[in-house]
Amino acid sequence: MIPGSFDYLRPTTIGEAVSALAESGEDAKVLAGGQSLMPLLRLRLALPEVLVDLDHVAELREIRDTGDSVFIGAMATHHQVIKDPLVRAHAPLIAQATATVADPAVRHRGTLGGSLAHADPAGDLPAVILALDGVLIAQSAHGPREIPAADFFEDYLTSALEPAELLLGVRIPKLGTGWGFHYEKFHRTAQAWAIVGVACGVRRANGAIEECRVALTNMGPAPVRAHEVERALLGRVATQNAFKAAAAHAAEGTAPTGDLHGSAEYREHLARVLTARALTTAAGI
């Protein structure tokens, strides 16, 4: 299939990009890596009048150390993120989960910012950023804005970004030592979307769980934190049984829908099973 017609803008700086968005209004779409957008354009499920291509805004590709956090530019490609030493050192969960996204060719083009702004509940990275308490940085003509991940993913394919707002990137707090992480993705084939994904981190000290993060992919119109699981594990000794018991709460507060690949009930079941497995792997037991 063939995309409908659109005008094309190719800013080279963040300032130009913000202006381009501001001038184009609600009919504009930002083109990041295009790996989700291009199929939508080709199937004519998206018919923007203007496409603002960020490909040449070099500063958006930067990944840098900002002291107590790592900043990943919105246009950092999946490929870049997987390889990046800062990400691997301070946010290994992102590197591991990103390696499960699509396939190598798609990861060469697809970007972290694009995946987050697309806000597909079946996408792997929103839950990961949510688990890591990432902070998304947006910029409009009115200035910059920080949006915690918990407030960013609002609904199915809907983020907190305003139409004229540009996602600059995401700040990931460094989590220090003692953590183990894992992203558990469950899908029918390598190419298929996650039926359920579990992003988690566990920090242990003296055998006990001091801190724990669990976020779920595709368990509702937006990624969700499994707070009940996190609470249930605080102070517990990390054993398989403890993880299993806590994971029994994984589906609480979720609102999954059924589709071709799994019913809501099955997703709830999977959330429990996979959460236990993800925690066990993260804890390295």
Binding site: P39, L43, T189, A190, Q191, A192
Partner: peptide, 11 residues
């Protein structure tokens, strides 16, 4: 689409 009709890959 091939995103919904699952033709297996090498994996």
């Amino acid at each position: 689409t091939l995103a919904d009709y699952l033709v297996p890959s090498a994996s």
